[in-house]
Amino acid sequence: MPVKRTPLAAHLVRAHGARRLVLLSRRGGNAPEAGSFVRELEAAGAERVDLVAGDVADRDAVAAVLEGIHPGHPLTAVFHLAGVLDDGLVEGFTAERLHRVMAPKVQGARLLDELTERLDLAAFVLFSSAAGTLGTAGQSGYAAANATLDALAANRRKRGLAGLSLAFGLWEQAGVGMTAHLGKAELGRLRRQGIGALTLTEGLNALDVALARPETQLMPVRLELASLRHALGDAEAPPLLRDLLRRTTEGRGAEASEPAQSLDTRLADASEAERPAVLLDLVRSEVADVLGLPGPDSVPADRALRSLGIDSLTMVQLRKRLAKRLNTTLPATLVFDYPTAEAIAGLLLHDATTLRGNEK
């Protein structure tokens, strides 16, 4: 408690012998198919399942739930899964948006910590996120919230209390949950950041392993190092993943620098008439890579990139990649001012022509 309607509840019954569950969520028993969910848990072995409606960030609501637990069957374990996503660039964050992210995860965890402090809990498990450890694009608020959970688990251990923070990576899409809205572009971006998706079985197995270990914080995550290496090119790897990548990238220095050298060579060898096509191919290739599309042919030259699924985060990524490939500076409003691949290629051609003229 609190636990959302996820396979975790059934897993706790089947694999860990939980017999009485109190599941706190915003809709509680009013949630769709709540009755069938309870019957499923009872069929798995649960003796009693209470679905309670309430806000985990509301002190009175959480206190009422705890007070309603029968003293003959005291609370023995807490699993905190609550969370809300509100991704975006730091410049676009407001106090309201930050509160939206922090309240369920941080305030909820702090209330559970405070209100159960005197109970002899066997487990106090916080579902954190790899975003707080690795950092993921556009999730500064969410990363801060999850880093706070990691710190709370450590603080509980120092007080002699049960505490475990699990910084999970992405789970496979099942049409529900916080990441159900993610499309191919977002999932592709995560893969390029080195994050793959855990299957349900892998995620639950990771939980079982973590519960049996002594650490305060663990990070169950599927790493996609090959995708990360490809996305990095000759850029430096994130510090936390550097050692893992180093073992598979030793001796690849020349290969890593090949893309930029190849582009320089192509531009140098191309005639004035051929350079627009070279730059257009570059832009279409980078757009396809950023959006996780099959290849440059899937990016029409004259179609607005926003209609292909590019968002504020992938706009930034595209601008940085193009600027690095051409060793130039591009405007922050690149995709707004130059909405198609053809328009961006035209800007790059103008910059390259201007640069050559200045060099002469």
Rank of each mutant, 00 (worst) to 15 (best):
E91I: 13
A151E: 11
V316Y: 01
S262R: 15
R246E: 12
M1T: 14
D297R: 13
A77I: 03
Q261P: 00
V106F: 04
Q217W: 00
E67W: 01
S307W: 02
A9R: 10
A31K: 00
L225I: 06
D243F: 01
V283R: 00
D297L: 09
G45F: 00
A256M: 11
L182G: 01
D289W: 07
Q261G: 01
H350G: 10
A77W: 03
R275L: 01
R321T: 15
A174K: 13
G188C: 09
L291Q: 03
D281V: 02
T136E: 09
H11N: 08
A53Y: 06
D58L: 05
L134V: 08
A77C: 10
T354S: 15
E96C: 02
V62W: 09
L81Q: 14
A332E: 09
V13W: 08
K320R: 15
D86M: 02
D311P: 08
L291V: 06
G194Q: 07
L8W: 03
A31W: 06
N205F: 04
P238T: 09
A145C: 08
T133A: 15
L198Q: 11
E33V: 09
K158N: 12
A352Y: 00
A109Y: 04
L240C: 00
G108Q: 11
H80E: 03
S257I: 12
S128D: 02
V335W: 04
T133F: 00
D60T: 14
T6E: 12
A53L: 04
M1E: 13
G17Y: 07
L349I: 01
K105N: 09
L187Q: 13
M102N: 07
S227P: 01
P238S: 04
A109N: 09
L126T: 10
S25H: 07
R222G: 06
D113Y: 06
T6L: 14
A235Q: 14
L263D: 07
A95V: 14
T353V: 12
I69P: 00
A109T: 11
A206P: 03
S25I: 05
G45T: 06
G163K: 02
E215C: 02
L126G: 03
L51H: 06
G203I: 04
F79A: 06
K158P: 00
E91W: 00
T354D: 15
G28Y: 02
S298V: 00
D234I: 06
G169T: 04
G175V: 06
